[in-house]
């Protein structure tokens, strides 16, 4: 027990140091996203995330968007539990055979207007899983994709830029 407390007390902050200016940049991007979302949807952005067969690397990065550092909720952006409530779909991973149909149903269940952002290299071109027997293809083979975020996995900031890019595209 004492050794545990000793360990806790002795361990310094182990997270990576922030890049200078990152913080301000996040705020700028997020404000822009919010402005666009309000213009286009008449309210703040509601996001539904679909894992179409991902290794969960991208999910960790998406999850980080809700961490105290990024804290997307402060800009009104909100992860929702049903596509019925969503304006934006974040799709990760190569689309597997089992998830192709649910992904299509999710897209159909999302009320228009809506945007689709493919997150990560796998979503773009199946990455290392390309040609696998369980893989149908990239997200764009199933749904019309508005923006692609590259990276394996992409950083949270890049995900935000991807959402912004999708919003900036004229519908």
């Amino acid at each position: 027990m004492t050794s545990l407390f000793e360990y806790i007390l002795k361990t310094p902050v182990v997270t990576e140091a922030l890049k200078p200016g990152d913080d301000a940049q996040i705020e700028v991007i997020s404000r822009q996203i919010d402005d666009h979302a309000r213009k286009r949807f008449g309210r703040s952005l509601h996001i539904r995330q679909v894992d179409a067969g991902s290794c969960n690397g991208c999910e960790l990065e998406i999850g980080a968007l809700n961490s105290p550092y990024y804290d997307l909720e402060r800009f009104g952006m909100h992860f929702v539990a049903s596509p019925r409530h969503a304006d934006c779909l974040l799709v990760t991973g190569p689309v597997t055979r089992n998830m192709a149909d649910p992904l299509k149903r999710t897209y159909e269940a999302t009320p228009a207007p809506k945007i689709v952002v493919a997150i990560g290299d796998c979503a773009h071109d199946c990455g290392v899983f390309a040609g696998g027997y369980g893989v149908v293809g990239p997200v764009s083979a199933i749904l019309p994709v508005d923006a692609v975020v590259h990276g394996c996995p992409p950083e949270p900031r890049e995900i935000l830029l991807g959402i912004l890019a999708a919003l900036e595209r004229q519908p």
Partner: peptide, 10 residues
């Protein structure tokens, strides 16, 4: 009009 959302079940 689209089917009732059933969590994507087939």
């Amino acid at each position: 009009y689209y089917e009732t959302w059933g969590c994507g079940r087939a």
